[in-house]
Design a protein around this nucleic acid. Structure first.
Length: 939
RNA sequence: GCUCGAAUGGUGGAAUGGUAGACACGAAGGACUUAAAAUCCUUUGGCUAUUGCAGCUGUGCGGGUUCGAGUCCCGCUUCGAGUACCA
């Protein structure tokens, strides 16, 4: 009997599906294990061979854990809101809901071919009202919460109003947009509208005027992680800075907890490092510089942040960000024109221009500030090298010891003072935090480290400032001026105050619109909705019969960003159909959090930060029971394309083979990889591929045309996309799974090379041949296995178990190949060996394992068997190596028969001629027994 | 610039500080076939030898630790990823 995957694979997939063997439910009798893949955005292009890599790995692990007796939650769903569907809708008028549903169908049919063990009854889609109802719900929870630093958790906003009633802001240590201070009396004297406006300063989901990344081409605002090198992540359009009133999430309140949480989770150092960098904690001091009084100027002070308070005696000027609120305060009438011109030129530049052109620019404001320590007056400048969004948007400039300040000072001829003994700062600043202080008053003679501490102490005690920790992490801008996203459950009352849509009215449905573009008046696309859920809201909250909704009482017309729906989806999987809660308490208490999360590293600073924040917030509210959502995380590498090239001689339609191309002037052209096998071009297929090449001539090497190749991103335009469906059609899902794992370490990026898949396929056929002879059928015998056979099996079990545990799937596949090669050479097929082998194989090649398992007479599925244990005794090597040490140090090792006693080994080691020579005059302390070591005696 | 990671045959890659190159692809040669496919066998880092059955050399470069280094430490080179005026 031949190995016929085309018959086997669909049959078992159908059987598993109808038996529902992958359905899970909470089961207190079994330990739980939650294996999660980052759910995909279903793009129109479908899957290419890179997508399933992580899914195959997680499937292997999930199956392995099941065989080990764990109750495994392994769900899948779709991150269905996104820009491509909306852009397609703008172009074609096709509603994004319809395109998305189609794409999901296609994704599902492709995923189904791979034999995954997902519990599809738990599928979620972020665009499904039953799902986004809970996204809206979570938003409202944040809207109705504030963050208390003392309690280090989110609290209900109602609690805050109670406190304000009684004591105002006195003694409150809470997260806010602007620091505020008022008494209980002042609070009580405010109107409701004023109070609401004030509360906005504290809500975790709040409406604020923010400098945002505005992308004119996309017509929407983008979060920091959606902007790369000044261009939008999607589409690569220019992005500019703009002040807009937007919904934001006060994620900055969680900065320290997000940082601390990293210590408790099992992620790669690289990933933790990039999160740490994104959070960007820095310790320093905030300090006040009084402005020098001038006629007709308001005066006041500049608040600055610095991490180098020790350098304060080297301050020779101050710099403000152009967008800083301080600017209005410092510009003198005679400098007004020059400053306005500068501000205008800064405003005109796009983010990309700003990043590309780092030349020094700035303008003097006309004001001076007083150094609080030295008492010296220094000029106040304005320059775009200072960022409005970080610290206070104002700095004290120390050109001697900061390279940016140095460049600025040189450019404008400002003084530069050295503060470290022996440092020459005429050409370059001395940025290192080392050396002995000089020119620094009471700090003279101290090391930099001591000086920082001393300066901080002085600043605190003298009241000119305070020690402060600053974070780079910005609040997340949460509004998108788009159609295809979750609507905000927010309406604006007659006074324009944002109000929450009552919880029982959720979900607030995304309305149909006739066009997916902004309205003529510049409102987001939702402004086109004719009735929408508006009626529902109105009925609920206000007793009016005829109000014009747009002008008097509008709903929020923005939608939420992509990360909204993906921030808590792993919780919804625990209880996906619950209509009363995001997930019921028993389900949450049982599944807790994700034990293994697999996905791409591109989400390091986006999804994985937002999701941790979202989870921590829900943890504070008691909705979830774990502080961190993802216990262990693995980033699978990207599968790159392996592009093939043909070389056309310039000005002709003649192609020259790779190794001869240097004799001609040629142009390198991408060739569709499907036309190339082992770098040999199918010339006829190439001519048929593109009319342009119909009459192409070829200069061959021997009788073949050899193509060049290069590793590139997999993309349509490079003709290097390999489709998994085709691979499965040709080789079967089991071969495909084995080969993807065999390609290399899971976490490494590597090129797809179709050439190698034959090896994986050959392996499966050889395995099949252990069971079936072409002529005589099933060849498995019930005789007792030989010692060699048993050894093969147990070596395999030990190796594969260890490899799966450490996610080294490529070496596990190799172990299978070695084992099958050995068993084939032994020419024996004992049931006692092959049965456990099938169980171990099942996570990797489930279809074949199931087929053969049943061929051996089993009724139940191999997926429900028990993982076998290996026996060390069977594996004991005939030689054992004894490492000889003394004085606690290993000196050499000696290999002896395994059954030799410890005393005899010691004796043997000592009596060995070389050993004895080496040991002459020294006394060995002990003999360490190290099994399976190499015979290697060095003296 | 900063942070992190990587570098091993023609290719993908293996190797708790212990015989470097497992496993696989590709290539070369052979067997079986009318032929092809499939399958099987042999060789395959480099150099020298191969009628001398072996020797030398070898994990990006330079040092160091160690009886012993692809692996650990220090200093470079190159490539990749992330980040970028964060005071």
């Amino acid at each position: 009997m031949e190995y016929s995957f085309k018959d086997i694979e669909p049959r078992w997939r159908e059987a598993w599906k109808s038996a529902g063997i992958y359905k899970v439910a909470e089961d207190a009798a079994k330990p739980k294990f939650y294996v999660l893949d980052m759910f995909p955005y279903p793009s129109g292009a479908g899957l290419h061979v890179g997508h399933p890599l992580g899914y195959i790995a997680s499937d292997i692990y999930a199956r392995y854990k099941r065989l080990q007796g764990f109750n495994v939650l392994h769900p899948m769903g779709y991150d269905a809101y996104g820009l491509p569907a909306e852009q397609y809708a703008v172009q074609t008028g096709q509603p994004p809901g319809i395109t998305t549903a189609e794409n999901i169908r296609r994704y599902r049919s492709q995923l189904d071919l791979l034999g995954f063990s997902f519990d599809w009854s738990r599928e979620v889609r972020t665009c499904d009202p039953d799902y986004y109802r809970w996204t809206q719900w979570a938003f409202l929870q944040m809207f109705n919460s504030y963050y208390c630093y003392d309690a280090a958790q989110a609290r209900p906003i109602s609690e805050l109003t109670c406190v304000f009633e009684q004591q105002g802001t006195r003694g409150m240590n809470i997260a806010c947009t602007e620091p505020m201070s008022f008494s209980a009396d002042e609070w009580r004297a405010m109107s409701e509208a004023e109070q609401q406006k004030l509360l906005m300063n504290y809500r975790l989901a709040y409406l604020g005027d923010m400098q945002v990344n505005w992308c004119p081409a996309l017509g929407t605002v983008l979060a920091n992680d959606e902007v790369i090198n000044g261009l939008s992540e999607r589409g690569g359009y220019p992005v500019e800075q703009k002040l807009m009133r937007q919904w934001c999430l006060r994620i900055s309140a969680y900065a320290q907890r997000l940082l601390d949480g990293l210590e408790t989770i099992d992620w790669t150092d690289a990933l933790k490092e990039s999160q740490r960098h994104w959070i960007g904690r820095s310790e320093g001091a905030e300090m006040r510089f009084e402005l020098v009084a001038q006629p007709s100027m308001p005066g006041g002070a500049l608040e600055i942040f610095t991490t180098r308070p020790d350098t304060i005696f080297g301050v020779t000027f101050m710099t403000l960000a152009p967008e800083s609120d301080y600017v209005a305060q410092v510009v003198t009438p005679d400098r007004r024109a020059a400053v306005d011109a500068y501000l205008e030129s800064v405003r005109r530049r796009t983010e990309r221009e700003r990043q590309a052109d780092r030349s020094v620019s700035g303008v003097f404001s006309g004001s001076y500030a007083i150094n609080p320590l030295s008492g010296k007056e220094v000029p106040v400048w304005i320059s775009d090298y200072v960022l409005a969004g970080y610290g206070t948007g104002a700095i004290m400039a120390v050109p001697g010891h900061d390279s940016r300040d140095h460049a600025f000072a040189k450019h404008f001829g400002l003084p530069i003072i050295p503060l470290i003994e022996g440092a020459d700062v005429t050409e370059e600043s001395f940025d290192a935090k080392e050396g002995i202080m000089t020119n620094s008053g009471f700090l003279n003679g101290l090391s930099v480290k001591e000086a920082i501490a001393a300066a901080k102490h002085h600043i605190e005690s003298s009241g000119i400032g305070r020690v402060k920790v600053n974070y780079r992490l910005r609040d997340a801008i949460f509004s998108r001026q788009r159609y295809w996203g979750e609507p905000f459950p927010i309406y604006y009352d007659a006074q324009g105050i944002p109000r929450a849509v009552p919880e029982h009215k959720l979900p607030l449905l995304l309305p149909d619109v006739d066009k997916y573009l902004p309205t003529e008046t510049g409102e987001p696309p939702l402004g086109r909705a004719s009735r929408w859920a508006w009626d529902t809201v109105r009925e609920e909250v206000v007793d009016v019969s005829a109000i014009d909704r747009r002008t008097v009482f509008p709903l929020e017309l923005c939608t939420m960003p992509g990360f909204a729906g993906s921030s808590a989806y792993y919780i919804r999987y625990m209880d996906p159909t619950n209509a009363e809660a995001l997930a019921a308490k028993p389900a949450v208490d049982y599944w807790r959090n994700v034990d293994l999360y697999i996905g791409g590293s591109e989400h390091a600073t986006g999804h994985l930060i937002y999701s941790r924040f979202w989870n921590k917030f829900l943890f504070d509210t008691g909705a979830v029971c774990e502080d961190e959502p993802f216990r262990k995380l693995i980033n699978q590498g990207m599968i790159q394309g392996r592009s093939s090239f043909a070389y056309r001689i310039n000005g002709t339609n003649t192609f020259v083979s790779y190794n001869l191309k240097d004799r001609y002037e040629t142009t390198e052209l991408h060739v569709y990889v499907g036309l190339v096998s082992n770098d040999i071009l199918d010339v006829e297929a190439f001519r048929a591929w593109n009319p342009e090449y119909r009459d192409a001539e070829f200069i061959l090497e021997g009788d073949r045309y050899v193509c060049g190749w290069q590793v590139e991103k997999m993309s349509k335009s490079k003709y290097n996309v390999v489709n998994p469906d085709e691979m499965i059609e040709k080789y079967g899902a089991d071969t495909f799974r084995m080969y993807e794992m065999f390609l290399g370490p899971l976490e490494l990026s590597k090129p797809w090379d179709t050439n190698g898949i034959d090896g994986a396929h050959r392996f499966l056929r050889r395995l099949w041949a252990l069971f079936y002879d072409r002529h005589s059928g099933l060849t498995v015998s019930d005789e007792a296995p030989s010692a060699e056979e048993l050894k093969c099996l147990h070596r395999l079990i030990r190796k594969v178990t260890g490899d799966i545990e450490r996610f080294s799937f490529n070496t596990a596949v190799s172990a299978f190949m070695i084992c099958v090669n050995e068993l084939t050479a032994l020419k024996r097929s004992s049931r006692a060996v092959l049965e456990p082998l099938l169980i171990v194989l099942a996570p990797f090649a489930p279809h074949m394992a199931e087929e053969l398992w049943h061929a051996l007479g089993h009724e139940s599925s191999v997926c429900t068997a028990a993982w076998p244990q290996w026996d060390e005794a069977i594996l004991a090597e005939s030689l054992v190596t004894y490492a000889v040490s003394f004085n606690g140090k290993t000196r050499f090792s000696i290999s002896l028969a395994a059954d030799i006693s410890r005393e005899a080994a010691e004796q043997a080691a000592l009596s060995h001629e070389l050993a004895a020579k080496w040991l002459e005059g020294r006394s060995p302390r002990k003999v360490i027994v190290v099994p399976n070591k190499i015979i290697n005696i060095v003296v």
